[in-house]
Amino acid sequence: MVDDIVFWGLAVVSVASGVAVFRVDSMARATYALAVSFVTVGLVLLLFGLDYLGIVVVLMMVMEMAIMAIYMIMFMGMNPALMPMSMVHGKRTAVTVAGLTFAVLAAGILLVDWPERRGAPAADLTLSLGHAVMGSKMLVMITVSAVLFATIVSALVLALPRGRYDTDGADDGDRASGEAPS
């Protein structure tokens, strides 16, 4: 009963803030409306007993949206994102694609022959989900994530040997007179 109320409450907030993403007229509001939508989805995962995944979704999404807001505002060059602006473009295509996707997914939910539950849920759902998804490839997956991360960092380092702000301290004197406060 309580679970149902919580689920429907979160679902309504999630969909409503998802709609808000396209209805508001500011990049900041759109970004954080999306963040709210993701956070409620993360909280719904808690209802499945997936504590770790649910909270990690909240963590990652808030972090991602906080950074995304900066990029959205920074790169919206022609239409300065500090001013009110529309959050939609290519309306007809977008509406068609979104409508079709929704129809396919909804039809999938209704038409798929869902299996009956066999046995009881595992004691540690996160662990068993990990085994189910990755199985014997666990070691590979763990290694790959570190390798991918190292690749991203080293690619950045190679692309930006000195970075936007030169930090070897050699030209501090020039900079103090120019831009950065010391």
Partner: peptide, 25 residues
């Protein structure tokens, strides 16, 4: 006593990112 209390704390400190930026925005 959440089974993932440490992650919970971490998620909350990430929310501070959003809040401080919003206070600035």
């Amino acid at each position: 006593d959440l089974p993932v209390g440490v992650v919970w704390f971490n998620a909350m400190d990430v929310v501070v990112w959003a809040l401080v930026w919003l206070a600035g925005w």
